Amino acid sequence: MTAQKIIACGDDAYRLIPSDNHQRHSIAEALRSSDVWDEVVVGRESVTVQYDPCETPPEVARTHILSAMDQADLAQQEIGSSITLRMRIDEKSAPELAACAKANGLPVDAFLDRITRSDLIVDMLGFAPGFAYVSGVDDTLAGQRLEHPRQLTHAGSVGFIQGFLGIYALDGPGGWPVIGRISERLFDKTSQDPVLLAPGTRIKLEVSQ
């Protein structure tokens, strides 16, 4: 396995840019199996690792990177776990669904079919606790952020912009058009892992009324 680029970031970090963007999570999993790294962070187009140069010289760190990349089983794309989520699409749960479908010249059912047939994967978490950026959405579907963001977007809401879904784990402000709401609980503060979705998780959406 090879990365398109391995870039030194100062004297204690490297940034890896894979030749295939979908390989980021597989590479990160392989890297995390080593105790060399202080931190492994998956970004939109890269993986960044940080290490202690007093314990691991840069050339040794680079060797560990190459070894980890060789170990990652990209052929099988074992990127992470998978989960099926139920998405409600009643008017209250999906206030912009009809408008998004109309903007793409599609009936609602056809628009949703294109969404649910997409190869959905949690790209990363950010913006707010547990907010999942989900990539893989059919990029022929157009969608833009709301002109006037909401003060309150309910937990479980599924936002849509071109190429992405944004899944809100908690109530909060939001600027994505909402096309549905997840029935499952996405954040549970009493759980050892309070956030249900993690980077690399593959998602299958099932639509319910």
Score class of each variant (00 low, 15 high):
185 R>Y: 04
182 I>Y: 00
118 S>Q: 05
127 F>K: 06
137 V>R: 09
112 L>S: 09
192 Q>N: 06
191 S>M: 07
128 A>F: 00
125 L>H: 06
176 W>P: 01
196 L>Q: 15
110 A>S: 10
152 L>S: 13
137 V>T: 09
171 D>G: 01
176 W>D: 09
165 L>H: 10
181 R>Y: 09
169 A>V: 02
157 S>F: 04
127 F>N: 06
142 A>H: 08
115 I>C: 12
109 D>T: 14
138 D>K: 02
175 G>T: 13
174 G>Q: 15
140 T>F: 14
107 P>S: 13
108 V>R: 08
199 P>I: 04
115 I>A: 15
178 V>E: 00
118 S>P: 11
187 F>A: 11
143 G>W: 09
125 L>T: 00
194 P>Y: 13
108 V>Y: 00
134 V>Y: 08
141 L>C: 03
188 D>Y: 09
108 V>W: 05
123 D>M: 05
130 G>F: 00
158 V>M: 13
168 Y>E: 02
168 Y>F: 12
175 G>V: 14
109 D>Q: 15
135 S>W: 01
137 V>K: 12
131 F>R: 10
153 T>H: 14
146 L>N: 13
141 L>A: 08
179 I>F: 02
143 G>A: 11
110 A>G: 03
175 G>W: 12
139 D>E: 11
131 F>D: 06
173 P>H: 04
200 G>F: 00
146 L>G: 05
137 V>F: 10
160 F>R: 06
154 H>S: 11
149 P>A: 07
154 H>V: 12
172 G>S: 07
168 Y>W: 05
183 S>G: 04
169 A>N: 11
121 I>S: 01
127 F>G: 03
155 A>M: 12
188 D>H: 01
133 Y>P: 11
172 G>C: 07
131 F>G: 05
144 Q>P: 03
137 V>C: 09
140 T>S: 15
153 T>C: 11
196 L>F: 12
163 G>E: 03
162 Q>V: 03
122 V>A: 04
123 D>H: 09
166 G>R: 12
121 I>N: 00
118 S>V: 06
166 G>W: 09
195 V>I: 09
178 V>H: 02
166 G>I: 15
195 V>Q: 08
159 G>I: 00
143 G>C: 11
167 I>L: 12
136 G>Y: 10
173 P>G: 07
143 G>N: 08
135 S>F: 04
200 G>R: 03
147 E>N: 01
149 P>N: 10
151 Q>D: 15
167 I>G: 07
131 F>V: 03
117 R>W: 05
137 V>N: 10
170 L>T: 01
192 Q>D: 14
170 L>F: 00
198 A>R: 01
160 F>H: 09
112 L>T: 08
145 R>P: 14
149 P>G: 07
152 L>G: 13
161 I>F: 00
151 Q>F: 14
153 T>D: 10
124 M>W: 04
146 L>K: 12
115 I>E: 04
185 R>G: 06
199 P>M: 05
155 A>N: 13
151 Q>V: 15
119 D>Q: 13
134 V>N: 09
142 A>M: 13
148 H>D: 13
180 G>I: 04
134 V>P: 04
150 R>E: 03
127 F>D: 02
